[in-house]
Design a protein around this nucleic acid. Structure first.
Length: 153
DNA sequence: GCCAACGTTGGC
DNA sequence: GCCAACGTTGGC
């Protein structure tokens, strides 16, 4: 079992939106960063747990837990000329971008970014170290610590 | 809305 | 293959 953190702008797609989709979940399309893609394509497995993070908003932080319900497959938006995520260099034969499906697992009391930054047990967390990455692995220890922080709030 | 950080692109 | 220019992310 691996643990992950995914960022989403709540104005665009929030934890409530994910909850509303139920067990089917959502295809995590639109990732256009190679490091993030590689994590999804090569390392994400069925049942992996995901910290759901709200970025670029007033209340940034971890707000829930999701689960990987489908492993990597080509992101269809790369083939759609009308999509914001269209990539003319991608083809069906050689897709460039991949996505997984995730589904709502449970909500958490929000753990703010500032609290995570202040927690020395979370030193080395990629969210802090590699702040521009939108899909990243989280160690089991860090995952448990963030959930504990939520429950202590 | 500003700006720092940093990934990507393209000329050479 | 280097690196400057550029575009994007994302916190504040």
């Amino acid at each position: 079992m691996n643990y992950w953190l995914l960022k989403s702008e709540p104005d665009d797609f929030s934890i409530s939106d994910l909850k509303a989709l139920g067990k089917t979940g959502e295809g995590w399309n639109g990732v256009r960063n190679y490091q993030a893609r590689n994590f999804m394509r090569d390392d994400m497995a069925l049942g992996d747990l995901v910290l759901f993070y709200h970025s670029s908003c007033k209340a940034v932080g971890v707000v829930g837990i999701a689960k990987v319900v489908k492993t990597a497959y080509p992101d269809p938006t790369q083939f759609d000329p009308n999509s914001h995520y269209f990539d003319p260099k991608a083809s069906h034969e050689v897709p460039r971008w991949f996505q997984v499906d995730i589904a709502f697992e449970r909500a958490l009391k929000r753990v703010p970014l500032a609290a995570m930054k202040a927690n020395e047990k979370l030193a080395g967390l990629l969210l802090i170290k590699a702040s521009r990455l939108s899909v990243m692995p989280v160690s089991a220890e860090h995952f448990a610590e963030i959930v504990a922080m939520s429950e202590a709030r």
